[in-house]
Design a protein around this nucleic acid. Structure first.
Lengths: 214, 214
DNA sequence: CAGTGGTCTAGACCACGTG
DNA sequence: ACGTGGTCTAGACCACTGG
């Protein structure tokens, strides 16, 4: 437990607000926390949280030189075994794309997103490296996202496209975009990528306080 | 660009400090930033940052039922091909451990840490699930960490311990603990883990503001 | 130069926790 | 009842920006 704020004010000859701003900085970095009516307390900051950036294939693969649209279809969730993710009643737009690096097909990306009648899939955007970003922008601040990374065997359709042996293990990166409020799924992106072509680097966060307001 | 702070004060009938606290909250969440002498500006928050927790094997594997100490040796970095990480002059302590889950050997962990004469490796701690944590605690707040996750073939020594075929791909999770100030390496942990037994889930961060000081 | 954000102060009222 | 942290105010001085 730290000394009380009034004691610290005297000790450092600063005003209450200034002292609290200082404590606030320590608090933001996880070094202290406060309990109203009791006091401020020291806390060991959690150094086991890692961060990484992940937007689309091109951020993972140094060189993406071509993206080929394989198909755009409308399907029902149950057909895809996605009833546990999407509502059964919804129809899904599914976009399959094949990603090339150095003239080698290295990844297949599947994007599932609920089909909403009066919002057609804009053809022009399908060849963008990051189609799911287009969807994301529509919802602006109201989303949260999850990614899951694992290694498994891919469906035969995928292994064919990537010219792999039937049971060759492959990276499977699953990204879900969810409505922040009600957790409803907005988009599911599955990226199957050859295991040699992917690795993840994550770092302990460093507080970048440039341009922040205090 | 937002209205100036003095305008906003009038508009909302609040004092300068109160207004700035509000702006500070928006700033901390990435929605705005400020440029001294010019003004406050809107910014699209970065939604491509993901976070995950990673401390040790037991946080990844639901059930770790045994950890077997394989060896503790002192080696030189060049012998291990680690000259690019550690200083050539340093001697390294290397600790090898084998991790069991459901009576199956599923992972091997190698921990390399500089050998410092008057700080003997405490035998009691070697069987802790998380030995690198012990090292980390000594440096308290002065560290940063990095993890890299990839799939590759392991050294033969590893594949033998895990009873894998020679070229079976395996997850390789490399954690580096670095001195925050000078980037000097303090510890290198390499975890080889069977590909079926590992997957990573990461999420867009949610600001937990409980107990924070504002 | 006037306007902007960055910092600080002294004093006030409140809700909460403890005895 | 008293001390704690949480919030707010009105006013001050500074450094930086741009015309």
């Amino acid at each position: 437990m730290l000394k009380s704020e009034s004691e610290l004010m005297k000790e450092y000859n600063v005003s209450r607000m200034t002292l609290r701003k200082s404590l606030s900085l320590l608090s933001n970095e996880g070094y202290i926390y406060s309990v109203p009516g009791k006091g401020n307390f020291v806390r060991q900051p959690d150094t086991d949280i890692y961060q990484f950036r992940f937007d689309d294939v091109s951020s993972i693969i140094p060189q993406v030189d071509d993206i080929k649209l394989l198909s755009v279809t409308i399907e029902s969730p149950s057909h895809e075994g996605l009833d546990n993710i999407f509502l059964k009643s919804e129809q899904l737009v599914r976009i399959d794309r094949l990603i090339y690096s150095n003239n080698e097909a290295i990844a297949v990306e599947l994007v599932y997103t609920p089909y909403i009648p009066n919002r057609p899939v804009v053809e022009d955007k399908l060849n963008f490296a990051n189609y799911s970003k287009v969807i994301e922008m529509k919802y602006a601040f109201a989303i949260k996202k999850e990614v899951q990374i694992r290694v498994s065997t891919a469906p035969q359709y995928i292994t064919k496209k990537l010219i792999l042996k039937k049971d060759d293990p492959i990276f499977c990166i699953e990204k879900r975009i969810l409505n922040k409020e009600n957790n409803n799924p907005l988009t599911l992106c599955i990226l199957y990528i050859k295991k040699e072509h992917f690795h993840l680097t994550a770092k302990t966060p460093e507080d970048d306080q440039s341009k922040k307001i205090f």
